[in-house]
Amino acid sequence: MYVTIVGCLFCLTVITVLAAFIELGVLNTPLALGIALLKATLVVLFFMHVRYNTPLMWVFAAAGFFTLIIFLALLMQDYMSRDWQRPPAEFLL
């Protein structure tokens, strides 16, 4: 089974390198990140044995990643929206 997983990981690495050279516009980054996420999921579930572990360990394993996603999402909703609206001049000190 580990051989199958490592084979999948090698294939996905080749795919992600090839995909980087194909012009997909805005889709390049989501594709590269999606493949990375898939690879990370395979490692976590099989190499790190979460697949066969207790529900408590599922929660522990997911908590770190989940918190990071919240962190990044809130951070970027701040940075990406900063220039959307400037307050009227009379409100600026």
Binding site: T13, T16, V17, A20, N28, T29, A32, L33, I35, A36, K39, A40, V43
Partner: peptide, 11 residues
């Protein structure tokens, strides 16, 4: 696995 696409594969 995340550093590789983020650093090596942009544009």
């Amino acid at each position: 696995i995340f550093l590789f696409p983020l650093l090596y594969l942009i544009g």
